[in-house]
């Protein structure tokens, strides 16, 4: 792997707090190594800003290994930047070349209000899980783990759906700001397993209802969510949610 260094122009969204008007600020960064991660490049910029007596840019990040789902930058017109199946923290600077201009914006959706600069509030996702994204078992069950064999294919599909990191890139990419990929991943994870079967009807109805309340849009299968998902969650999960929802709501006998 050839390593190189580069100078970049960054245009970054700055917004003091939730109620402030924001605007783009332009920064120059120099001698960025192609081996750095994108967030390490931001570290360099922030150190430079602090050195110059300015306020650093606030951005969400934590594990920096692509699993916590905290990082959330919309880079050059794409959530998490140009690489496929990658979170912002795993994006490395060899994706860019000397002289590039990089525009960085926060996730944009009414349901994800900006908290500061590039930080957004994704608590709506937690409330959707609260609406039913679980199996209602208390601690202390006594059924042996191997008592319920699960077809490997279904277990694998459930795992693939459960791999969602809740970063919100799907919402950020969707022209409708729809959270359907996120919601459907959870619905699928649990609907594909016998453990989730008992509550599957209420789960899907309640989670969709909460999703609508939070102000997310509806799905029109544009597939943008799947294309930007860092965990490559399949859009087929949305189809599964739709089927689950139709079955559950039509079977419901509430008048």
């Amino acid at each position: 792997m050839e390593h190189y260094s580069m100078n970049l122009t960054l245009k970054v969204w700055k917004q003091q707090n939730a109620s402030a008007e924001g605007n783009f600020e332009t920064y120059q960064v120099k001698d960025i190594s192609s081996e750095m991660s994108f967030l390490e490049m931001f570290d360099v910029l922030n150190e430079q800003l602090i050195h110059d007596g300015k306020e650093p840019i606030a951005f969400d990040h934590d594990c920096r290994e692509g699993i916590c789902g905290m990082c959330s930058m919309y880079i050059n017109g794409r959530p998490h930047g140009p690489w496929h199946g990658t979170t912002t923290c795993q994006l490395h600077m060899r994706a860019f070349k000397d002289g590039d201009t990089v525009v960085v914006e926060p996730w944009r959706a009414n349901a994800f209000p900006v908290v500061k600069d590039l930080v957004v509030d994704r608590s709506s996702f937690d409330r959707i899980i609260q609406a039913g994204g679980y199996v209602s078992v208390n601690t202390g069950v006594s059924i042996d783990g191997n008592a319920i064999p699960i077809e490997k294919d279904n277990a694998d599909k459930a795992f693939a759906a459960a791999a969602c990191i809740g970063c919100g890139a799907c919402v950020a990419a969707c022209k409708n700001s729809s959270a359907m990929l996120f919601v459907s991943a959870k619905v699928s994870h649990l609907a594909l397993l016998p453990q989730g079967n008992t509550e599957r009807k209420n789960r899907v109805m309640n989670m969709v209802s909460q999703m609508d309340k939070e102000g997310f849009g509806s799905c029109t299968f544009t597939e943008a969510c799947e294309a930007v998902c860092p965990k490559e969650i399949s859009i087929t999960n949305i189809s599964r949610l739709n089927g689950e929802y139709a079955k559950a709501s039509l079977a419901s006998d509430k008048q």
Partner: peptide, 30 residues
């Protein structure tokens, strides 16, 4: 109705649009 409702879910838009990165134009132009 859906088109207008969905558009209203992002009051503040992006400076750099996604364009056809990830989603074919006709899927987004229904």
């Amino acid at each position: 109705v859906l088109e207008f409702q969905n558009r209203a879910k992002r009051k503040k838009g992006y400076a750099v649009k996604m364009g056809s990165k990830g989603s074919a134009w006709y899927r987004k132009s229904m």
